[in-house]
């Protein structure tokens, strides 16, 4: 029996992620939405969904006592970060007048407004292509430059270029996917990206490290 825990910190897309994972999981996979230490410790893999503002996300993670749990999971298990669940892995965000993040990877989360031309709408909302920068088991059966659904106003800018696993273009090229050891994190929402998104979630369930 595989156990997947979706970290519960009142993120808005929690249930969408759970529904999509349920859709692709076989009956040997148990899916749990939880913030309990015991569940996270016993899980085979962890999904960190995310949505909304950086400061709010950090506050909720603290309220749910999830900071240590995430640090633990990131070092030990297949870990999938989605949207804000990718951004919070960096040092700090310029959102909400500057927000300190989990500081797993060096680099900042920047405001699109200050980096792209004025005729580009914000949020960056809709379907955009993801260029696969490296090979990865989570890209199995997903063609290079496939489209995924995005909705965000800030983007991660990693200092270690070797963790950049996917990029997308919105006036500028930005990092839309990172991967490092047992961690894979994407700015887009696989749970809302129909077949390719579901394939990515399926690949995550089957990912052997």
């Amino acid at each position: 029996m595989k156990k997947i825990v979706i970290l519960d910190y009142d993120s808005g897309n929690l249930h969408s992620v759970a529904k999509a994972i349920t859709q692709v999981a076989d009956n040997k996979t148990q899916i749990l939405i939880s913030d309990k230490h015991e569940h996270i410790k016993n899980a085979d893999r962890i999904i960190f969904p995310g949505q909304g503002a950086a400061a709010d996300c950090m506050r909720k993670l603290k309220e749910h006592n999830l900071i240590d749990e995430i640090n633990y999971a990131i070092k030990n298990k297949p870990f999938l970060g989605i949207c804000m669940g990718m951004q919070v892995l960096f040092q700090k965000s310029s959102e909400n007048n500057g927000t300190d993040l989990l500081n797993i990877y060096q680099g900042e989360v920047k405001d699109f407004k200050k980096h792209i031309k004025k005729d580009f709408k914000i949020p960056h909302m809709g379907w955009n292509n993801v260029k696969q920068m490296t090979e990865h088991p989570l890209w199995n059966n997903i063609k290079d430059n496939s489209s995924f659904y995005f909705v965000h106003s800030y983007f991660a800018s990693p200092q270690q270029k070797n963790i950049i696993t996917g990029t997308s273009l919105y006036d500028i090229d930005f990092c839309s996917v990172i991967a490092c050891e047992n961690v894979f994190a994407c700015q887009f929402h696989p749970e809302k990206s129909t077949n390719d998104g579901l394939q990515l979630l399926k690949n995550f369930i089957n990912w052997q490290i």
């Binding site: 909302m125 809709g126 379907w127 955009n128 292509n129 430059n145 997308s168 273009l169 919105y170 006036d171």
Partner: peptide
């Protein structure tokens, strides 16, 4: 290729 226009 960049952000696509959407049909809803």
């Amino acid at each position: 290729m960049s952000l696509a226009k959407r049909i809803i």
